[in-house]
């Protein structure tokens, strides 16, 4: 599927789509005239995407998709989607895990440090504990595996890696990430894939944990 | 895929799995000895499912899946999963929509009314507005459709219907749901499907909106 992607720059949800397209060769063009907060509030946009959220995708044969995981799936290829039903189910598991478990904990920890929302010590402590639990789950899973599902990269790896970006960028300083060597190896493999670099550029791992500062 | 499902009773996430299995004929057995809060804290369970969450699935050939949408996918059939890539992408879109948009708003509205969470007027009002927006999106989408994707029931319908259960059960009283006739029609069709009734039994639509009571 080729088409137009509406998003603001540096949107990790849009990265999933653009990286999937790098692997599949799908022609996905980011609309250069899209202005977040303006375009997605126009009647024309809302007629296509009533929730007014991004990323949103308009396929060249008119299909309209408003969810980042669904868009990534549409522009992917069979390898990324999973060849067998068993692999497809496990890929869906990790996509859901990234959305439902990883993302809330990651944002609850990082957003206050970026000044995007008020800091709450209870929530912050809990988020850190949850992130440790999730990193440990991924680390154990990757002890015996190169990729999350099957022998090759899939939407599971792309989705989890893009959701981990802000953690590795802002708070997973070397001492904090030391216990998760298998995960660090996998993440470094991911960000060094040419198809990933083509979308997110050179990624700098966190050297000093960002903390909330009044 | 056949196997054992670990869950507590009346878990809408497990309903998705059991309804999918009703359509596909997959043999999914709920472990009668599972005791929530006890079994899912044992080392044996945590060795298979480190997050200790339910529903969790152990396939008859040993596959382990810990996410309800992935389990439903594994026990489904081709019709439910979507026949074309385009349909599969749209089915994933609605599954994500149920998880990422519907569920948070639904829980934020209903949990305090059930006494599960403290009541917060701001959050409650915002959740109600979000629910209205989502019901309206579904209602418009279903103006010209019998099911959410394609001509037949799919995982999209099962996932969205199960996520809507607590709203239709507790707070969508007749006057509140009156503006969403297409959605009400679709929801009623869903809960009257034999495969759905076999799992959730007779479903009673809300007659009086549950409100928070000190």
């Amino acid at each position: 599927a080729s088409g137009t992607l509406y998003t603001y720059p540096e949107n990790f949800r849009a990265f999933k789509v653009l990286i999937a397209a790098q692997y599949s060769g799908a022609q996905v063009k980011v609309d250069p005239n899209f202005q977040f907060g303006v375009t997605n509030k126009t009647d024309a946009f809302l007629a296509k995407f009533p929730l007014g959220k991004v990323p949103a995708f308009e396929g060249s044969n008119g299909e309209l998709i408003f969810d980042s995981n669904a868009i990534a799936y549409a522009v992917a290829n069979e390898q990324l989607r999973g060849k067998s039903t068993a692999d497809q189910a496990l890929i869906l598991q990790w996509i859901s895990f990234a959305e439902v478990e990883l993302l809330p904990a990651s944002c609850t920890w990082v957003f206050p440090c970026l000044g995007l929302m008020p800091f709450n010590k209870g929530s912050n402590d809990r988020a850190k504990e949850d992130v440790k639990k999730f990193l440990s789950l991924l680390n154990s899973h990757l002890l015996t595996r190169t990729y999350l599902v099957g022998e090759r990269i899939s939407l599971a790896d792309i989705s989890v890696a893009c959701t981990l970006l802000q953690l590795y960028q802002h708070v997973l300083e070397p001492s904090f990430r030391a216990p998760y060597q298998n995960l660090n190896r996998w993440f470094t493999t991911m960000i060094n894939q040419p198809q990933v670099k083509a979308v997110i550029g050179n990624f700098e791992l966190c050297s000093k944990m960002l903390t909330f500062d009044n | 895929a056949s196997g054992t499902l670990y869950t507590y009773p009346e878990n809408f996430r497990a309903f998705k799995v059991l309804i999918a299995a009703q359509y596909s004929g997959a043999q999914v057995k709920v472990d009668p000895n599972f005791q929530f809060g006890v079994t899912n804290k044992t080392d044996a369970f945590l060795a298979k499912f480190p997050l200790g969450k339910v529903p969790a699935f152990e396939g008859s050939n040993g596959e382990l899946i810990f996410d309800s949408n992935a389990i439903a996918y594994a026990v489904a059939n081709e019709q439910l999963r979507g026949k074309s890539t385009a349909d599969q992408a749209l089915i994933l879109q609605w599954i994500s929509f149920a998880e990422v948009e519907l569920l948070p708003a639904s829980c934020t509205w209903v949990f305090p009314c059930l006494g599960l969470m403290p009541f917060n007027k701001g959050s409650n009002d915002r959740a109600k507005e979000d629910v209205k927006k989502f019901l309206s999106l579904l209602n418009s989408h279903l103006l010209t459709r019998t099911y959410l994707v394609g001509e037949r029931i799919s995982l999209a319908d099962i996932s969205v219907a199960c996520t809507l259960l607590q709203l239709y059960q507790h707070v969508l009283e007749p006057s509140f749901r009156a503006p969403y006739q297409n959605l009400n029609r679709w929801f009623t069709t869903m809960i009257n499907q034999p495969q759905v009734k076999a799992v959730i039994g007779n479903f009673e639509l809300c007659s009086k909106m549950l409100t928070f009571d000190n």
Binding site: F36, C107 | P9, V100, P104, C107, F111, L116
Partner: peptide, 30 residues
């Protein structure tokens, strides 16, 4: 960037709801 990120759909309070749901069903099942 800040405006955009802050608009992201994220269930920040999810862990509170998870805990509440867990507690309720654990009590119900015991």
């Amino acid at each position: 960037m800040a405006l955009e990120l802050a608009s992201e759909t994220v269930w920040f309070e999810k862990w509170r709801y998870d805990d509440a749901e867990c507690k309720y069903h654990e009590q119900k099942n015991q």
